[in-house]
Design a protein around this nucleic acid. Structure first.
Lengths: 212, 212
DNA sequence: GTCTATAAGCAGATAGAC
DNA sequence: GTCTATCTGCTTATAGAC
């Protein structure tokens, strides 16, 4: 009976260590994908042994799933927020800004997702459909509402969301390439500002009611 | 002396087999990245042995380099073509169309690149700067010329190219996710048509001289 | 909780027979 | 050119001492 308590309520130190492992794993999976990462690399990266890592996450697959779940939550909140704004200009501007901020502050999160999708999402197709699809549909319905109210032009809003994702995620996934071609070691805050106004301008310009 | 000929001019069968290996490798590297692919998998995929594959490509790294080089050539021709068109509307429309066609017909090629870039392009940073950068600069100069002639609005053309790449490549790299969210097993020709008019509309709408 | 030791398997690459 | 055999090293995972 004295065994029950420690199992149900892990100590703060345990939670912190799990979080630490999770972040290190996110960065490694982002760069090399599930198959390309060794638990040894993740472990030494944060100064623990491979065996100790396996104590906290019993298998490589469970660790990977935990990383994906952690990233997904950050994604969905942004999508949920857009469906609530009454004004399309504000909603879109803030959504693009939030998505780009995520790319800037946590590029690994975006990259893990992109890699998973590129392999055909074998480990994640289910959760993708169950959790992302409802939010996507809610956002598309919001676009349709704005269109009916005459606030925006009508286009294929699902594909428009795909393109917003593509543009904002590129500033995480393809950041090394962009930086290289800009002749700098890494993207600077100014590049994200430029990207934000450019992406927002592209989308809002196309949706403006009086435009063709 | 009779040894020289076969070494210098490989027979047609050899060339065909190299090409066969190259295509199989491209698909595997696209899905699983350099570290995630085994030569065994590539070999059995086309019905040869791992050792026989190593006869044609002496190492995994040389095979990977050959794949990247093959893909890069297809990329650069499209970029070179845009710098030649006198009319921005035609040039941009055709560039987007060509880029999307590549994503549709050869998604693996795009994915190998994206994966390489996402790992920080350790094997490819040099060639990226040497071969892609000149074409990017030529295209940006063409945009600047159009802007001086009053044919288009002035924006940050380098980042605009980044966004065009992001949008068009997403229809290769993220195609599985898009298809899943659209409720179909794979993207259909109609989806690429929708994407093409949407992307072209976004870019041309923003560059239209009389728009803000 | 963290360690050492080790199992069991697969990777890339080479040597040499045919 | 294609094969069998083999080397070396690294991978995930487990067993068990402390």
């Amino acid at each position: 009976m004295s065994e029950v308590a420690p199992l149900r309520t892990p100590r703060a130190a345990t939670l912190r260590k799990q979080e630490h492992i999770l972040r290190a794993a996110e960065q490694q999976f982002a760069r090399f994908g599930f198959e390309g990462v060794s638990l040894e690399t993740i472990a030494v990266n944060i100064g623990i042994s491979r065996q100790n890592l396996l104590y906290y996450y019993p298998s490589k697959e469970q660790l990977y799933d935990a990383v994906l779940d952690d990233v997904l939550q950050s994604w969905l909140t942004g999508m949920a927020r857009m469906a609530q704004h009454p004004d399309p200009t504000t909603a879109i501007t803030e959504y693009v800004a939030a998505k780009l901020r995520f790319s800037q502050e946590r590029p690994s999160g975006s990259a893990v997702f992109t890699r998973e999708v590129m392999t055909g999402a074998p480990r994640y197709a289910g959760r993708l459909a169950e959790q992302v699809l409802p939010h996507l549909q809610a956002d598309v319905r919001q676009f349709e509402r704005w269109a009916r109210e005459g606030l925006i032009q009508r286009v294929d809003f699902t594909h428009l969301m795909f393109l917003i994702w593509a543009c904002t995620q590129a500033y995480a996934d393809l950041a090394p390439q962009f930086a290289l071609l800009l002749g700098k070691p890494a993207l600077e805050p100014q590049d994200f500002t430029t990207a934000q106004s450019l992406i927002t301008g592209l989308v809002l310009g196309r949706l403006k009611p009086n435009a063709s």
